[in-house]
Design a protein around this nucleic acid. Structure first.
Lengths: 359, 359
DNA sequence: GGCTTACGGTTAAACGTTTTACCGACGTCG
DNA sequence: CGACGTCGGTAAAACGTTTAACCGTAAGCC
């Protein structure tokens, strides 16, 4: 592949001049500029990013490490991050960590080795984040002491990492929004299906929900994970019935719940309302369309890149955390109980959908 | 960040020795080996990928350029490619081209500039692929003559690119499978919703379908695109009715069709059967679960990486094309017409699902 | 005309690796 | 005892850029 030296020879100038022309770092005679450009074009010259990165210390690449692309939230999030990164002039390097701590460590290691300018990281487990960044391993146990992550600009998404920048959705008020909505619908008995309890956001949503919910009303809680397969215990309990609404860990779980209920002849939302979380594209496509809490993916991506850029400018700056507002999107999977149904349910749906579109 | 030179000084050896120890390229005294490794660990040394890439000419990175992450097929495909790449020791660099030809060109350019070892590319439009790779532009029109893509190992997915390796699903037999299935169900009048006609795979499916379909039976055809929003003309025509089945460009379109039909009181599959394409995760979650044609994503990813590796070994090798078999997955959105419904429809569903799981 | 300045361009030193060639010491063998 | 191969380690060149320092020439100024 043609190098700068080849271009220089073809144009009859020095490599320095070629560099200056191509990057516009110095004024040159129009004639020389034209000669150089012509030569570069003729040879199909493509600057070697490796070499210039080595020299300048900047690669123009952001690394992204995600737990699982199969969860539809993450492609959407990735797209948002990629768009923000591109707007800021960065390419994106992707690593799917498959929810595996070892893979996650390796992923971060490779990103650092490639000297990416910054890392956007959704840790698989939230304890894991901090452990991976700090010096880890149990001294004295003989376990190999894992080295800490070098001081690379890094922003954690949705999970806290000690002493690092982070961006969160406001899961607490997400939980509160769900509780408020269900209360307004006249729901009395509710089932909460949480994701993994090790995930901060799950706990935050629960906190937000319970803060708003009448403390005297019984609430049934269980772990459902984040995948479309419900644990057997949850399925059995859903069959048991006895609740007016189910609030789910995410949209995939909500869809699974709806299918399970319908298979048993329970009608959604007439008999039981179901609320999801995330508002993935799927949510508006299923039947009934999901009432859910929308995460501000675009804002998350933009904030993440912004934090990284700020940190590149000032490595010593104190860690900053950004919390972004979420939004309840009312669709067809929830409906008023014990009160005039059509009017309330429908009008709320229409209004909310309208607003979210114009936003 | 600590460099090799720092490690060498700390260990009291030369940089060459450090390199040899860390890469195991030469035998060293156990004592020296231990000293070097200890120093590296103590300093938190991470080799500089840029530098070694510059020296060796290999980056260990594969570039991936996709049209649109919002289409759920592509995250799934990306995951497959990433898994295959990782298995072969490569990292993946992602670029979402947003179905935009200019962005696509820029994406490929940046990947080349970063000297990725290979590129996996799903061209947005299939004429675009070839045009981008060859020298383009219209000489004489004054349009800036776009330079051809340098000779980087590159594999095109699902769209042909002149003189390059490529991997396809067997869309022709995909179309045939759909036709055969619908015929067996007793469907007489069918609507075909195609994606963009500029996409090779769409044309191939149509060809496969019509080859199997009774040429005397009228077929209604229209372009629906690939997104979840149906064009107005298609919606109006669907409302008109008059067919027993709709074969769709992909699963998202199929879901949109089902919703549209149901809104008009048409029951799926009882009144009309609907068939999707791709078998994205969404397909089994919607109601009714989609009968669709599964693309062998894992095999596609593996084949793509394999082709790239082969070409790295032999740059002059002739371009090779790999066509991979697809599979009909029968679920609940299709049902037999004019014959005993429950028995045929259900048993076929059960059998097919069983087989696809054990596979 | 001699002085300074600005301009257009070049030289050469980095950046952090990998790798070839080399070198001294040591053991072996004739 | 001398020649020789082997072993462990090092010196130095190279990869393709960027950029600070430098240098001749021509223009500007008194």
């Amino acid at each position: 592949m043609a190098s700068m030296r080849d271009v220089a020879e073809a144009a009859g100038v020095s490599v320095a001049t070629v560099s200056h022309v191509l990057r516009g770092t110095k004024r040159v005679t129009p004639a020389v500029g034209a000669r150089v450009r012509a030569a570069a074009e003729a040879l199909g010259y493509v600057p070697n990013g490796q070499a210039s990165a080595l020299r300048t210390g900047r690669t123009g690449v952001l690394g992204v490490a995600l737990p699982d692309l199969a969860n539809p939230l993450f492609p959407a999030l990735l797209q948002a991050v990629e768009a923000a990164a591109r707007a800021a002039g960065f390419l994106v390097m992707l690593h799917d960590t498959g929810n595996d701590l070892a893979l996650e460590r390796e992923a971060l290691g490779r990103l650092v080795a490639l000297r990416v300018d910054g890392i956007v990281w959704v840790p698989a487990h939230d304890q894991g984040g901090t452990r991976l960044v700090r010096t880890a391993g149990c001294p004295g146990t003989g376990a190999r002491r894992e080295p800490p992550l070098p001081d690379v600009p890094l922003v954690a998404l949705d999970r806290p990492v000690a002493d690092r920048d982070a961006v969160f959705s406001d899961h607490v008020s997400g939980g509160t929004l769900v509780a408020t909505h269900l209360k307004a619908l006249g729901v009395r008995r509710v089932a909460l299906l949480h994701g993994a309890s090790s995930v901060t956001s799950s706990r935050a949503r629960r906190r937000g929900f319970l803060a708003e919910w009448d403390p005297l009303t019984p609430v049934w809680e269980a772990q459902s994970g984040f995948g479309p397969e419900l644990p057997g215990a949850v399925v059995r309990r859903l069959r048991g019935g006895g609740f007016d609404a189910v609030a789910c860990a995410n949209d995939a779980v909500a869809v699974a719940v709806i299918r399970t209920l319908e298979r048993d002849g329970v009608r959604v939302p007439r008999d039981v309302s179901v609320v999801g979380f995330d508002d993935v594209p799927l949510a508006r496509l299923v039947s009934p369309p999901l009432t859910t809490v929308r995460q501000p993916l675009g804002a998350i991506g933009a904030a993440a890149v912004r934090l990284l850029v700020e940190r590149m400018a000032d490595r010593a700056r104190a860690a900053r955390q950004v919390v972004l507002p979420v939004e309840l999107v009312v669709r067809g999977s929830t409906e008023a109980k014990h009160v005039a149904k059509e009017s309330v349910g429908q009008s709320v749906t229409a209004r909310a959908e309208e607003r979210s579109r114009s936003a």
